[in-house]
Design a protein around this nucleic acid. Structure first.
Length: 422
RNA sequence: GGAGAGAUGGUCGAGUGGUUUAAGGCGCCGGUCUUGAAAACCGGAGAGGUGCAAGCCUCCGGGGGUUCGAAUCCCUCUCUCUCCGCCA
């Protein structure tokens, strides 16, 4: 959420930012609501101050044995006026809040302005494309042949997009999760969190999933709960409504399954594990001061990259331009893995700096150097998401005989196994 | 699922309709004293909104009601704790 005062004082900058984002929001309508709100507040407060004064006098009159009935009637009439103001104030504030919840974050000053994802600049790349002296097979063929997963049976249980892993395939999931959690906790200084996998509407609003993106999520209406689309949701909101007394930055990592309806992407990347409704992910979340968030964003991205370097996978980092930036993000790097059989780059991580946008929605504060409460900056990134990581490992490490080499760093987590084979 | 108890500031905790302008303790910050510290003593300090400011308004778990006036009385919801039942 943007600060209404910021919008009021920087109206043209906000409008330009929204245009660069290609976001259709009515900034003038929000400002008009704010103006009305302030008018109401001024009038209502004047009345309330007078009522408080007179009510005190009534107590005094009773003590002195005077009859207060005439004054009571007068104050009762004031009370009716105040009630009317209060009611209108509630209505206007609800509309204003709702309007603000639909306005995306301001892109950072360094975010490139662009028209589409084609304008996302490549920041850097690591490793190089592997050469094959045979035609590399797609992961869905390899997985079926080696018995690592059974997508048909997953679909039987839940529908397409709910993968079912078997044997060494299931163990590979578990090994990758543990490998990444160990890396981030032992070498990068994150504290591991095991959060709830379902959250309520308020929590979903705090990080920006609600109200605008309700159709992207699953929902359990009977209990008002949503299966989380990412660990970002519970881990960021764990400090909602709090003033943090702790030293910043706070670094958390969490493994969770993620549930996404993928509405609007029907028919796109449907084969194999490319785009699924349920997947595993290890997430990185940071809470920082405004002074350090940009540096922490670079470090967080590097922490995610480290996973891929240790696994020896060719990747590149791109920066999202204004047109492609996520709703709540101010600045974002995507990390993409090369998948040879797809002949494509696959996104495995989005590392975002949200500045104080989520903190304002979720009301997460710290005490600044003056001891005054101020909003923290929140950041997060996948460290990393599993399905496409598994795709890259399978397709890059395949051999002519259909076996797959397990990356050295992962072997201890696979009980010393070096190869996936029949 | 049933029965009961509770929710007050950073924390503990007092407060049954009008000097509550939320006492007091602990913790925190500043000062005096001290070589320095501790102790003692003195002082300071909540959050949000509005306003150029002085100030004013709101906030005692959330919401609603009674009243001239609510932390206090009534209704309702949420959460926590205790006991019982069921259960991996």
């Amino acid at each position: 959420m943007l600060d209404i005062r910021f919008i009021r004082e920087n109206t043209e900058a906000v409008k330009t930012a929204m245009k660069n984002r290609k976001a259709e929001v009515d900034i003038d309508a929000v400002i008009a609501l704010d103006n009305r709100r302030r008018e109401i507040v001024a009038e209502a407060e004047e009345l309330k101050a007078e009522r408080n004064r007179i009510s005190k006098n009534i107590g005094q009159m009773i003590k002195e044995g005077k009859n207060p009935e005439e004054v009571k009637t007068q104050v009762r009439e004031m009370g009716d006026k105040i009630s009317a103001f209060d009611e209108e104030q509630r209505e206007v504030e609800a509309k204003l809040k709702d309007g603000l919840l639909y306005i995306p974050n301001m892109p950072s000053a360094t975010t490139p302005v662009g028209q589409s994802e084609a304008d996302n600049p490549i920041v850097r790349s690591w490793g190089e494309k592997k050469r094959f002296d045979f035609e590399p097979k797609p992961h869905w063929d390899l997985g079926a042949e080696l018995g690592l997963f059974d997508l048909e049976r997953g679909a039987k249980l839940s529908g397409s997009g709910f993968p079912l892993f078997i044997g060494k395939g299931a163990k590979l999931e578990r090994a990758l999760i543990q490998f990444m959690l160990d890396l981030h906790t032992e070498e990068h200084g994150y504290t591991e969190i095991a959060p709830p996998f379902m959250c309520n509407a308020q929590t979903m609003t705090g990080t920006g999933q609600l109200p605008k993106f309700a159709e992207d999520m699953y929902c359990v209406p009977l209990d008002g709960l949503y299966p989380i689309p990412t660990a970002e949701v519970p881990v960021t909101n764990m400090y909602a409504q709090e003033i943090l007394d702790r030293e910043l930055p706070i670094l958390h990592t969490a493994y969770t399954p993620c549930f996404r309806r993928e509405a609007g992407s029907a028919g796109k990347d449907t084969r194999g594990l490319l785009r699924v409704h349920q997947f595993d992910k290890v997430e990185l979340v940071k809470f920082t001061t405004p002074e350090t968030s940009e540096a922490e964003h670079e470090k967080l991205t590097a922490d995610a990259e480290k996973v891929l370097q240790k696994l020896g996978l060719h990747y590149r980092v791109i920066e999202l331009c204004t047109a492609d930036l996520g709703f709540s993000a101010s600045k974002c790097y995507d990390i993409e893995l090369w998948a040879p059989a797809q002949d494509k780059w696959l996104e495995v991580s989005s590392c975002s700096n949200f500045k104080d946008y989520q903190a304002r929605r979720a009301n997460i504060r710290y005490r600044n150097e003056e001891g005054k409460p101020a909003f923290v900056h929140t950041l997060n990134g996948s460290g990393v998401a599993l399905p496409r990581l598994v795709i890259a490992i399978m397709e890059n490490n395949q051999n002519a005989d259909g076996s797959i080499d397990i990356p050295e760093a992962l072997q201890p987590y696979m009980g010393g196994l070096q190869k996936l084979e029949k």
